[in-house]
């Protein structure tokens, strides 16, 4: 037991706590868009906490080394770069599929924009993609 293991355990605990919160959010939120909002939490603080926690935890153990930390950092970096693309694809697919916003939603500028840019709803699809 030393400072590294304690810090690592705390980070993993924090990560699992945010995993729990995002699962709770999946149940509590009213529509698919708000559920996406809470589920991105698990990808960011949840996964980052667990991944960084494991890397730091390993520094404090007798079998661990700095290699664990650099490897987990690389994993975290790739996760941060790829995860939002799937989130973006999912929520965009949901909208294009016509899933309605929750009745408590206050504004939908995207629908107004699609209307304004011509009756053909496909027009804005062409540009702007990554």
């Amino acid at each position: 037991m030393n400072a590294f293991t304690v810090l690592g355990e705390l980070l993993v605990l924090l990560g699992t706590f945010f995993y729990f919160l995002s699962t709770l959010g999946l149940i509590r939120m009213p529509d698919v868009y708000n559920r996406m909002q809470t589920s991105t939490k698990s990808a960011t603080l949840g996964s980052l906490g667990v991944i960084a926690g494991v890397g730091i935890w390993a520094l404090g153990t007798d079998f661990g080394s700095a290699a664990w930390l650099t490897k987990t950092m690389a994993i975290a970096l790739f996760l941060l770069m790829t995860n939002p693309i799937s989130a973006h694809a999912l929520i965009r697919a949901a909208y294009k599929r016509g899933i309605p916003l929750w009745h408590g939603s206050v504004v939908d500028k995207y629908a107004e924009y699609l209307e304004k840019s011509g009756g053909d709803g496909e027009t804005p699809e062409g540009g702007g993609e990554e």
């Binding site: 909002q37 809470t38 960011t44 693309i85 973006h88 929520i91 965009r92 909208y95 804005p124 702007g128």
Partner: peptide, 22 residues
């Protein structure tokens, strides 16, 4: 990506310099 990674905001679509964000 940064907007999507920040909880509370998700990029729905990008068209030129227009961002539509939930």
């Amino acid at each position: 990506n940064s907007i999507t990674l920040t909880p509370g905001t998700i990029t729905l679509d990008v068209d030129d310099d227009n961002y539509f964000i939930h």
